[in-house]
Design a binder for these strands. Sequence first.
DNA 1: CGAAATATTGAGCCTTATCAATTTAAGTGG
DNA 2: CCACTTAAATTGATAAGGCTCAATATTTCG
Lengths: 206, 206
Amino acid sequence: MTLVRCEVDEVIYHNQEQAQYWYRVVTGAARKCSLMMDGRRQIVDFLLPDDVFGFGADDDLHHFSTEVVSTGTTIARYPRHAAEQLAESDPQVSRWIRQQAFRSISRLQARTLILGHTSALARVSAFLLEWMDRCNQPNGTTICLPMSRYDIADYLVMAVETVSRVLTLLRTQHIIVFRSTRRLSIRDRRALELAMVGTEDLLIAN
Amino acid sequence: MTLVRCEVDEVIYHNQEQAQYWYRVVTGAARKCSLMMDGRRQIVDFLLPDDVFGFGADDDLHHFSTEVVSTGTTIARYPRHAAEQLAESDPQVSRWIRQQAFRSISRLQARTLILGHTSALARVSAFLLEWMDRCNQPNGTTICLPMSRYDIADYLVMAVETVSRVLTLLRTQHIIVFRSTRRLSIRDRRALELAMVGTEDLLIAN
DNA sequence: CGAAATATTGAGCCTTATCAATTTAAGTGG
DNA sequence: CCACTTAAATTGATAAGGCTCAATATTTCG
């Protein structure tokens, strides 16, 4: 296992690259993304500390590229062949890998559910709630968004401008408060949950 | 392991139900879906023969419900505890489960990429191409859609009417030909690939 | 054959993408 | 530390695409 300290926007592995390692985020954040044929970028998953990624290629190639999102990100790297052989022999390791795969599935399904919302308001609200849960700040409602608005837009499959607009709407409704551009507090969780359901009337009403 | 023969629309397991089994499609097709808070339904995954599902719950509850799509669907059922213990002891089984989990991840990511397209035309085109690959008819381009248009709409997160409209557009452009409502041939694969990229001009031009 | 479910087509409105401009933040070098 | 440059984020106006509501057509099934 090797620890690697990374720069922002550094590419951990490219799409179509030989899958030589499995990876785990130690500190910081990363994005798994895909460049689509029409030139747009799509972010399939955000990776946070303890998230494992880079496995699961049916052939031996990565099907996405993964890039570092925030400064001070550290990645642990496991030689794939060794890890796989270890998995064959050691039930402990095997179980751990299986559980990580299941976690990965959970994340993907969670994102899928977010994309299930048709309105921009609902998607952004769902995203904020998901992110709050993932950050898992003990009691506080202040969350840090390490990624840019562009990243969020590409994750939610919408235009940056729309992300921005929804965020300002939520701000003017005092549902969220910005500490800085990328740090915010959720003031009214209930309102966000309602926004997910699509009753934007409530936003105007309050 | 138990083999179960199912009726159409039969529920294999409900959301929030105790996860007692792992499942595998033997013949036919199923849909994994989630009822959203706003009443809309979302289909997270379609399951085809040899697809394994129902595993990966972090707690012991299913987080979706899974229903049968087509007549003559047969499902294999594996007691979860026994399967897990077997996985602990038998490297073969362990490896198999790991690979199935990876396959599941691949499917989810594929769907994610489909939802990455913004236009209805692109989504439906991507769906048809994905489905053609999954059906894996040796040489033929005729594919069978076991699910209803509503299912497709809920999979692609759009209105049924839009699905219908796109399909008729593709038909009038002779890109696809309907053998029956739920069977069609792809006449111009290239055009579908172009449609994914968003050049709908080409549709009008030809 | 008739009834119910499924699928298609039409019209109008609403949301969001797009293009364009401005403001704010973040680096950079003197 | 401050001017300067560049990137990131916000705001505005417009137009297009898709959703909604409504009606019709087709298929399925009893």
